[in-house]
Design a protein around this nucleic acid. Structure first.
Lengths: 193, 193
DNA sequence: TTATAAAGCTAACGACATTAGTTATCCAAA
DNA sequence: TTTGGATAACTAATGTCGTTAGCTTTATAA
């Protein structure tokens, strides 16, 4: 019975590799244990069952995403900040498809750690939008729109929803520019709901 | 052994009710069989296992969605057609959250029926966009952007990703108007990628 | 050197999907 | 009206997975 010396970090890293390589559905206690050369009940010494494992993966992913966004946006303002944010979001989702899936699982009600981790990602978007001339509710709506844009594109790309052989990066840039142009129009008050 | 006389329609309907009420994860052969007062192996007389059930639910959902879009868009053109399409998409996703989840499952490679059913939904969007002054690749990009918008919003709303007590319908309308304004700017050639 | 906490293990249970083989029902043809 | 076949239900059994309970060994600190 050689003792592996497994710790939370390598556990999460291994689970992440599994998810990114074969999809989140491939992450089971059985498959993770096998990859770690361990029997699945032993995992309960580190994790409180499968739901807790998935939750910790989501937390880990949100932390990574938040810091990636913060890093790429740093020093930029206005349109450039929005572009950098969007690029970084897309890059993260492409680099960590399984982790990205984990992030999308709806958290339990009253899970403060998840709320906080998610709030930090949203905070990056808020920061970018806030110095954009949008105030109050308008800024909050804009944040929601950006999140919808990004998540929708990433999600459709990941599931292969875009069938045609048309450059996806072009679509993505076009989407961001369309948003920027639309926001300017709206900001200038040329419309009413 | 009373014979139920189960047919494909009631089977799909029951599965849909289950999915819409308790989420797609709650749709198992066991739970579906229980709801039908049947033993789960009996389901194999109607369905080729759980993956096939989920696939048929997706097909059913795509058909419903496609006809809903077609119905609501009928007779409208330009901005109004886009608005009607978006409203109908959102309404469907809200009315059938479980079925909407089923639609999002990535189809197998070479599943022609799924490709076709998905293509009909995309076709509705193409039809709306095509008479919009966008031609060729630009139209295809626009279709992708609309799909991203819609799916992203629906998906975030469904998983409770929008925490704040700010009217979601307002955000949605704002998102659509932002897109319309942005597209006009882009169509007028005021930007370059 | 020894006691204790922790990290691994085996055994066992329940839920689920799935397969094989059985029986009863329905319907259509004789 | 009878009969035969297709079909829709069933039971039994297997394998996988998550999970719990309880045991054993290792590492570490007293």
């Amino acid at each position: 019975m050689p003792r592996i010396g497994l710790d939370r970090t390598t556990l999460l890293q291994t689970a992440t590799e599994l998810a990114d390589a074969e999809g989140l559905n491939a992450v089971t206690l059985a498959s993770l244990a096998q990859k770690l050369n361990i029997r699945s009940p032993s995992l309960y010494n580190h994790v409180n069952g499968l739901p807790d494992l998935l939750r910790q993966m989501a937390l880990h992913g949100l932390t990574l995403l938040s810091s990636a966004l913060s890093r790429e946006v740093a020093g930029k303002t206005g349109d450039d900040a929005v572009r950098a944010l969007c690029r970084a979001y897309l890059a993260f989702a492409r680099a960590h498809p399984g982790l990205y899936e984990a992030i999308q699982r709806a958290p339990d009600e009253g899970d403060e750690a998840m709320q906080k981790a998610g709030g930090e990602v949203v905070g990056q978007v808020v920061a970018v939008v806030s110095e954009y001339g949008l105030q109050g509710d308008a800024a909050l709506h804009a944040v929601r729109v950006i999140r919808s844009l990004l998540h929708g594109f990433v999600s459709l790309e990941r599931q292969g929803g875009f069938g045609l052989p048309l450059d996806l990066d072009v679509t993505f840039r076009l989407m961001v520019e369309t948003f920027l142009a639309g926001v300017k129009t709206i900001r200038n008050g040329e419309w009413r709901l």
